[in-house]
Amino acid sequence: MRIQCPICGSRDRREFYYKGDALALKRPAPDAGAEAWDDYVYLRDNPAGWHSELWQHEAGCGAWLVVERNITSHEIRKVTLAEDAT
């Protein structure tokens, strides 16, 4: 698998660290309540299809990326910098 880093170009998957669902970008307020925090930290949509997720180009520029990837086919259709997504 290769990922198109917006800064570095197409790189092998082994340069990247995977975190998980991009909902990690949407941190609830401290007082948002147990349900909101459960949703954020633990529960996942886990769709068998297109998935917006967070990767870091750890062995490259260090940028955190939002990658739109089909997790059934592994096709990647869009990669953006996480800092532009928030």
Partner: peptide
Amino acid sequence: DMYASYAARGNLP
């Protein structure tokens, strides 16, 4: 493989 997947197959790394 460390990335979410429903494909019952992996990659080389």
